[in-house]
Structures are given as structure tokens and as C-alpha cells.
Computed example of a mutant assay.
Amino acid sequence: MSRQTDVILDLCRTLPPTRTAIVHPVKPNVIEAAEEAARERLIVPVLVGPAARITAAAKEASVDIAGWEIVDTEHSHAAAAKAAELAASHHVGAIMKGSLHTDELLGAIVRADSGLRTERRISHCYLMSIGSYPKPFIITDAAVNILPELLVKADIVQNAVDLWRVVFGDERPAKVAVLAAVETVNPKMQATLDAAALCKMADRRQITDCLIDGPLAFDNAINVEAAREKGIVSQVAGDADILVVPDIEAGNMLAKQLTFLGGAEAAGIVLGARVPVILTSRADNERARLLSAALAVLLADARAKGRLK
């Protein structure tokens, strides 16, 4: 049976695979994830890390990497720096996290001299699909920015809107719900103040290509009846495409609850750098890993064609 997120894989069928730096792939599960994406013609793996440990991991995973490029580095810090260098020089068009800490990888990407920074703050998006909601939706930011201030949230919103446009096109603006515990502005709750400010920033075109409303509680952001019961008149309430959480803890809990209790599919990607960054997790299944790689392919293609800043 077709799933909502099949559109992501379908869009990649006509695109060439993206050369992707797999950073410090010294564990079998990372090699397996790279092999899955390569088998589906989503990526061409470039393995960056200690060559001996990479070879040992591939042997343990029973994956033949004889035809893959290996860039030998001493350790994970060097692998992260080398991957950033390969991306800045256009040798690769995407980066995939291997067996190293997320902070270590992203630290190499956001360095002032990396060549990968843009005017935007980097942020993470989960593109999710669940049977109880009629369309895919994005949760952001649940993995990178811990307690984002207003201007960081503006970048988080714009990154998510850009992802939405790449995957689903420009036929209509994305509907962005800025979440809080309540749907009214309360000066004692910073999330509600930020939500109101983001709405005004969109009015002034500091944030573009979306309809944005907030503060909205989760129920009236995704359920029309809940919004109607609260008397909320909005083009976004009950029909959100993008859910902007107040902080990383709220986003992480929400995404994992939907995934592990609700059976949602989730594909994760980091945006805001000059190349997309795939953050795989040991808890991800093959489908999630493939969808995340497919998002990277679509984003890399959009940037190459000038559709992304």
C-alpha cells in the first residue's frame, strides 16, 4: 500500500545519486545504512575516517566496499573536518553522520572557515507521516538548537519552509503552527511571545513563503474541531504542515512519542548549511534511513539548481 512519504522516494527516481561523505563510519550499522542508500541509488558513499577501522566495520557488516572511495583520517575530529572540506570543495554534495557525536560533526560544519556556513542558523527537521493525520508534516527543531531565541526561531521556520517547498512544491504556501502550551499571548510564557513576534515577522516578509500562526497548542494546531472549540479563526489551525516547537526537549519528546507510540514514520535532515546533513540514529529502521537520504538528495539537487539560498 502506498504511504504518504513515498512521494519523497518517487521524486528521487529521476535524479542521479548524490556523492555523500559518510563521516567516521567505523560501526557496522553505519556501513549498512550507507549500503542501503547506495543500493537504492540515492547516494554514492565516500567513507571518511580511519581506513582500517572502516574496513573492519564493513567486514563485520558483510558489505563489499571495494568500489567505494575511502578518505583515510586519523580520528573522528579529523573525519568531520575532512568531510566539511570535501563538501566545501564540491567533492560531495551531502554529509551523513556516522559513529561520532552530533556536536562534533556539526561543529566542523559551522566553523567560520569551513566554507559551509550560510546566512542562516542550521536547524533540524523531522518530516513525519502518521495514519491519524491526513498529510505529512514537519517538526522543528528537535535535534540541534537547544533553547532558540527569536531570530534563531525565524531561521528554523524558514529552513523548514524551504524543505517543504523542495518536497511538495510551490502550489500553496506551507502552513506553519508555532506551538506553545496555550493559544493566547502570555508575557510570562516566552514561547507565546516568540510565536506572536514570528507572525508579525511573516507579515513584514522577514519570513517568506508561508502562512504562520501562533501561539497554538498542539491540539488546535492539528485538529480542526479543537481549534473550533477554542474559537480560533485561522488558516493554519487544524491544518498545519509545519510544527515549530519552543525548544529541543519539547520537539524531541513530541517526535519520539509519535514515532514509538504512534507508529509515525520520520525522516530527519539538517538544513541551513551549504549541503544537507543526514543525522542517522541506531534506533532508525531502514525505511527512516532511506527517507532521510532521499531528503538529502532532493535538497542537494534544489541547491544545485538555484532553488535554495
Score class of each variant (00 low, 15 high):
residue 47 L to C: 06
residue 47 L to Y: 07
residue 49 G to A: 07
residue 53 R to C: 06
residue 55 T to L: 13
residue 57 A to R: 09
residue 57 A to H: 09
residue 58 A to Y: 12
residue 59 K to G: 14
residue 60 E to A: 15
residue 62 S to M: 11
residue 65 I to G: 10
residue 68 W to A: 05
residue 69 E to S: 13
residue 69 E to I: 07
residue 71 V to P: 07
residue 71 V to K: 10
residue 72 D to H: 14
residue 72 D to V: 04
residue 73 T to P: 08
residue 74 E to M: 12
residue 74 E to D: 15
residue 75 H to A: 14
residue 76 S to T: 05
residue 76 S to Y: 03
residue 76 S to W: 04
residue 78 A to K: 10
residue 79 A to T: 10
residue 79 A to C: 03
residue 80 A to R: 02
residue 80 A to D: 02
residue 82 K to D: 06
residue 82 K to E: 15
residue 84 A to L: 07
residue 85 E to Y: 05
residue 86 L to H: 09
residue 87 A to W: 05
residue 89 S to D: 14
residue 90 H to S: 13
residue 91 H to M: 10
residue 92 V to E: 03
residue 93 G to R: 15
residue 95 I to F: 04
residue 95 I to G: 06
residue 101 H to Q: 14
residue 104 E to A: 11
residue 104 E to S: 13
residue 105 L to C: 06
residue 106 L to M: 15
residue 108 A to W: 07
residue 109 I to V: 15
residue 111 R to Q: 14
residue 112 A to Y: 13
residue 113 D to R: 09
residue 114 S to C: 08
residue 117 R to Q: 09
residue 118 T to L: 01
residue 119 E to Y: 02
residue 119 E to W: 01
residue 119 E to T: 06
residue 120 R to K: 08
residue 125 C to K: 02
residue 125 C to D: 05
residue 126 Y to Q: 00
residue 126 Y to E: 01
residue 127 L to G: 02
residue 129 S to T: 00
residue 129 S to M: 00
residue 130 I to T: 01
residue 130 I to K: 00
residue 130 I to P: 00
residue 130 I to W: 00
residue 133 Y to I: 00
residue 133 Y to K: 00
residue 133 Y to Q: 01
residue 134 P to H: 02
residue 134 P to M: 00
residue 138 I to T: 00
residue 139 I to M: 02
residue 140 T to R: 03
residue 141 D to W: 01
residue 141 D to N: 02
residue 142 A to G: 01
residue 144 V to N: 03
residue 145 N to P: 03
residue 145 N to R: 02
residue 146 I to Q: 02
residue 147 L to Y: 07
residue 147 L to M: 01
residue 147 L to R: 04
residue 149 E to H: 12
residue 149 E to C: 02
residue 151 L to R: 14
residue 152 V to I: 11
residue 152 V to L: 07
residue 152 V to D: 11
residue 154 A to E: 12
residue 154 A to F: 08
residue 157 V to R: 06
residue 158 Q to H: 12
residue 159 N to V: 12
residue 161 V to N: 03
residue 161 V to E: 12
residue 161 V to Q: 07
residue 162 D to A: 15
residue 162 D to Q: 14
residue 163 L to P: 13
residue 164 W to E: 10
residue 164 W to T: 09
residue 164 W to A: 12
residue 165 R to I: 09
residue 165 R to Q: 15
residue 167 V to I: 14
residue 168 F to I: 09
residue 169 G to W: 11
residue 169 G to Q: 13
residue 170 D to R: 13
residue 172 R to I: 05
residue 173 P to S: 08
residue 174 A to G: 09
residue 174 A to W: 08
residue 174 A to K: 07
residue 176 V to D: 08
residue 176 V to F: 02
residue 177 A to P: 07
residue 179 L to K: 03
residue 179 L to N: 04
residue 180 A to W: 04
residue 180 A to T: 08
residue 180 A to Y: 07
residue 182 V to T: 12
residue 182 V to H: 04
residue 182 V to Y: 07
residue 182 V to I: 13
residue 183 E to T: 01
residue 183 E to G: 01
residue 184 T to S: 12
